[in-house]
């Protein structure tokens, strides 16, 4: 029952031969060695597994690989430019917006999508957007701060 799919992951074309029902999360982690994307629930309820597919956030734990042929996938590993951090990563790091850090890649990827859609989000928009991303350390105050800070940094960068 295996099929071969070509997907683009972090700018690289990858040919995957596997069961089309397998979740994208497993393919990323087990076949491509990209373990930055996390398993939190396997049910699309916590968003730890968030990645971008053609710029849109998907929960990779409930997204079968068979539906993604030809798609462009961005994971946390593809966000920085070498050792140089993306502004959202920079904001999370400089504000220490993590405790255990396990939710952080999903939080950051969801924030990438947020700021693409709403470069100057209100607090209410941030809360709505992030509603499905769980942090069990409950470090939300710092995460909110980091998102606000990243929004400012990104907006400033765009206007220059």
């Amino acid at each position: 029952m295996e099929n071969t799919f070509t997907i683009q992951v972090n700018g690289r074309n990858e040919s995957i031969t596997t069961d089309p029902e397998r979740p994208l999360l497993d393919v990323l982690r087990e076949d491509l060695g990209l373990t930055g994307t996390k398993f939190g629930c396997g049910e699309g309820q916590c968003s730890a597994c968030s990645v971008l597919v053609d710029g849109k956030r998907v929960r990779s734990c409930v997204t079968p690989i068979g539906k993604l042929a030809g798609k462009k996938i961005l994971t946390i590993e593809g966000l920085s430019n070498g050792d140089s951090l993306h502004p959202i990563q920079e904001a999370f790091l400089s504000l220490s917006a993590f405790q255990c850090g396990y939710c952080t890649p999903g939080m950051i990827m969801r924030t990438v999508e947020l700021l693409e859609n709403k470069p100057n989000p209100t607090d209410e928009e941030i809360l709505n957007w992030m509603e499905s991303n769980l942090c069990r350390c409950c470090g939300y105050p710092k995460i909110l701060e980091a998102i606000q800070s990243a929004a400012k940094a990104t907006a400033k960068g765009d206007s220059q």
Partner: peptide, 21 residues
């Protein structure tokens, strides 16, 4: 002092127990 391995966390490079290969 912030968490010393914070950069690995935000880059997705830190290997949690479930990430060990």
């Amino acid at each position: 002092l912030p968490r010393p391995n914070g950069k690995d966390i935000v880059m997705g490079n830190h290997r949690y127990p479930s990430d060990i290969v």
